[in-house]
Computed example of a mutant assay.
Amino acid sequence: MVRASLLAALLLALAACSRDGALEPFAESQVPATLTPRFYPPEGWAWGFIGVGDKPVQRYGVASTRRVPTAIVVIVPGYGETAEMWFETASDLIGAGRTVWVLDRAGQGGSGRYVGPRDLGHVPSFDPDVAALRELVRIVIRPSPDTPLVILSHADGVVVALSAVRAGMKVDGVVASSPRLARSDPARRLLGAVRRSEAAPAGWKPWTRETADDRAGGATHDIWRGLVGQAWRTTNPDLRMSGPSLGWTKAYEVASRLIETGARQTRTEVVMINATGDAEALCANLPSCRTEAIPGAGAALHLEADRWRAPWLTDVEDFIATRLEARRLAAVSADQSKP
């Protein structure tokens, strides 16, 4: 019954989107001819959509190990990223025995858009992202009591992940890779009061083939991984993304402040890798959070050269291993307490 309701909601959402092709969700991306197999979709990769209420649907992808999975990892990308940019990392995690899900952010990647043009990132708030993540876990994934579930977030994705945990999503832990919180800007707040929230900021430019790739933008040192995002966007116009709207930036600020004020109520294990500034301060206020440093790395650790990416992946796997052990010990303790 639940799955039938979800399907009905999805069909209605797709019908609504079809009135304006620029706003439609997008799956089945074409693999760029310039990429090598390590950047291809993991074996068995499948796409799906999830919709909450009357909001545009969000795209997710999933693949799993051929063995019984030892853990579930849900990846929450940062602004402007698509699930395709995480294929290599997903394959690594699947090879280690995990089931991997990637949820495209609201109004980005293959998800439906709130406004046009398609490459203008806009949401009225971060609530749709939070609701979609919670429902993906609760209704679609439905993890068993024996399988730990870990959220792997990147950049501003940490705000979505921790907001969902604070709202009651049950997970075993959160990895925050290069976490970023928004800074308050009084001048921008005044500007936002004058202009429509879905408007682009002054100087906004649409995506073009000349838009800097991740290496040119300083997010990674690796020439090949730095080209991955650009390759997917060049081949698949529906995935293209430029800068955010005024409303998206405001929503990011509001969600960041709520996370900071509610830090003590965010009760789950968290590790932040290469946290700086406000994110590092947030970690200090969370009930159970620690930081790891990988000096010299760019912000896109999943796309970094092996010198930095290898220790990052080890940190991620080590955290998953601690969650597995915590589950095992909890099960042993529960058995011993039985009469």
Rank of each mutant, 00 (worst) to 15 (best):
R3V: 12
S5A: 15
A9Y: 02
L10S: 07
L11F: 09
L11Q: 15
A16V: 14
P25C: 05
S29Q: 14
F39Y: 12
P42K: 01
P42Y: 03
G48M: 08
F49T: 01
R66F: 07
R66W: 06
Y79G: 05
E81A: 05
F87R: 11
S91R: 10
G97K: 03
R98H: 13
R113H: 06
V115Q: 05
D119Y: 01
H122K: 02
P124I: 04
S125L: 06
D129N: 13
A132K: 03
E135G: 00
I139Q: 07
V140L: 12
R142M: 03
S144D: 14
T147K: 04
P148C: 06
V150F: 12
I151A: 05
H154N: 07
A155G: 13
S163R: 08
A164V: 06
K170C: 04
V174A: 03
S177Y: 04
R180T: 11
R180P: 01
D185F: 11
A187Q: 13
A187E: 15
R188C: 00
L190N: 12
A193V: 02
A193P: 01
E198F: 08
A199L: 08
A199E: 15
D214A: 04
G217N: 11
G218R: 03
H221F: 05
I223Q: 15
I223V: 15
R225Y: 09
L227P: 00
V228D: 06
Q230D: 13
A231E: 14
A231W: 02
R233T: 02
T235I: 03
T235V: 06
G243V: 00
K250N: 10
Y252D: 10
E253Q: 11
A255Y: 09
R257C: 01
A263I: 10
R267V: 06
V270A: 04
A275P: 07
G277W: 11
D278A: 15
A279C: 09
L282C: 03
C283Q: 07
L286G: 04
S288K: 14
R290H: 07
A293Q: 14
E304Y: 02
T314Y: 15
F319P: 00
T322C: 02
L329E: 15
D335F: 04
Q336F: 06
